[in-house]
Design a protein around this nucleic acid. Sequence first.
DNA 1: AATTCATTTGGCAACGCTGTCAAACAATGC
DNA 2: GCATTGTTTGACAGCGTTGCCAAATGAATT
Lengths: 342, 342
Amino acid sequence: MTKSRATMTQVARLAGVSIKSVSRVINREAHISPRLRERVEAAIAELNYTPDTAARSLAGARAFVVGVLFDNPSPNYTMNIVGGAHEACSAQGYHLRIDNLDSTEQDRALADQLEAVLSHGRCDGFVLTPPLTDIPLVLDTLERHDVRFVRIAPVLAPGRTPTVQIDDFAAAGAVAQCLWGMGHRHFGFVGGPPSHGAAGTRRAGFFSRLKALGLEAMPSEASGDFSFDGGIAAGFALLRTATPPTAIFAANDDMAAGVMVAAAQCGLAVPRDLSVFGFDDSWVALSVWPYLSTVHQPIRAMASAAVSLLLDHPREALALEPVTLDWTLIERGSHGPVRPER
Amino acid sequence: MTKSRATMTQVARLAGVSIKSVSRVINREAHISPRLRERVEAAIAELNYTPDTAARSLAGARAFVVGVLFDNPSPNYTMNIVGGAHEACSAQGYHLRIDNLDSTEQDRALADQLEAVLSHGRCDGFVLTPPLTDIPLVLDTLERHDVRFVRIAPVLAPGRTPTVQIDDFAAAGAVAQCLWGMGHRHFGFVGGPPSHGAAGTRRAGFFSRLKALGLEAMPSEASGDFSFDGGIAAGFALLRTATPPTAIFAANDDMAAGVMVAAAQCGLAVPRDLSVFGFDDSWVALSVWPYLSTVHQPIRAMASAAVSLLLDHPREALALEPVTLDWTLIERGSHGPVRPER
DNA sequence: AATTCATTTGGCAACGCTGTCAAACAATGC
DNA sequence: GCATTGTTTGACAGCGTTGCCAAATGAATT
């Protein structure tokens, strides 16, 4: 980028105003006459001027950097978060920083990792993704350093910090409803690791709705650790019983894909012999056959909203009321009506 | 990050030297006495000083930003690229910029997208990923703007720019060798879109080795567009013939996963009735059952190397000799010895 | 008409660092 | 011993922007 870029001084000269006024227009400050604004905007357009981030950051209080902190093994999830956050950032001329923490570390080590992140460079705020959102040590450390942050889909201490989420409880309820409506009465549930709180919420929503619908024998359960492998194992555990379920709901798509493998191994055809539902609508949902029925979580939009929350509000005015985005039930090929009892 | 960070002036005062000397130590400039360096480094450590990127960028020629340009539908691939590039960047205190182009656009529109990217902010260089690496317009535009860039796995005009790659030809040959050694004599190949040049190289390497091994009837072929869907369709095309192949090599993992679906639909068990090989060792390779045999491409390392190439060499000294990283044949469960002819 | 107050604009000193140039110092050759 | 060269250090002026304060302008009140 050798090509010399226009500077504020040049814009000011062309518009016949002071550079301070140009600055005001750019920052949308109050008390600018329409006439001045027009002149400046014309000059900006003519010179194709873009403010220099480095200079803005040096002179002002903002760093023009927001960070995403994650510790999520799924590249699909992470990529969507990064993509969404990046979109929101670059729309406002901010840089995105990515930091991978290892939450399985000891407390002490985790704290050190965080300190390292914080001392690495200035940052206007962070976006936290699960399971980091629910680790008290992380929240405490961030708050102690007086750092702004938004949590995505936290379970712990809702209302403690600004939050972006979906209604996992209701979404899981919708899955139960859908399956129930197709005649299923024998259910299985594959849960996630305890560290991932949302898995618990999804379980609660699923069970609660089934109960409300009048189900007596609660679903059999197996834990799958949110992984494909875990899903296979959980699938076997659920399927190799005297009265196997006719429908299995897994708390994420990877495990649901694993359940489908287990079903195939057991000689069960999906969806004829077994209905499978996932959660997330991640990449893997379209990499299995039949395509996985699942709950679409607008992950990109959530990350984007989290960044906007950080950027659009003055330092103190971060709303604590959670921003709740919509989920969608995606009915693809992995579920269907229950077969008549043989 | 309200906590006030140490500045160069403070370090200089503590070490009893001028700020310029501190600057010299930080930038590893020549002509610094060991004594001075030690004193400064001690002071830096004591104050936990980190140079301010914004100030460095404003004062100096570097922007401390490198960009990744991509247009790749696979989040796995992209995430690895971004991860690797980010790693290399943050190790040197650089920011990473991500820009998604749409290479299916008209030339004019593509050029506009590029111009927008270039005028968006200063940048010390770009990393290009396929298929952008092989679009002459992109290369021309970047060169015309006098922008440094490194291409990852290009096919077009090797040697024109700095490049990081693997030896696709040899890797595909190794797949052929492996399959041949297990007794296979009837092969199928699933190719990628013409825009993705590496698919062609993989095909050439596969065919060439088979020929060298003495195969007479060249493999049947089908095109799969690098997608799961395309792989399913190609799998059917290959399998539903009078003399179906006993081994299929797909130019990427997504298509290979699709081939496995087609095989299952045709009542063929993998690897008993059909051996399947993929390429990339992406996330999907471990999301199918049996796990996919494939060629591991060190994508993170490649991106990381690309950034290092950009950062470690002075403006003019980018080596044009391609950096070639190692691939690995990953033999998992989707291939095996051919069944005796029935 | 004079006074007060709010609105709109400008001047200028930072912000933390690097580039340029020059000064101080040490080593070498005659 | 003095000029010459090379090495090591420091002084200082920006880089492009924002924050603070003051000045100019206009409107409203007495």
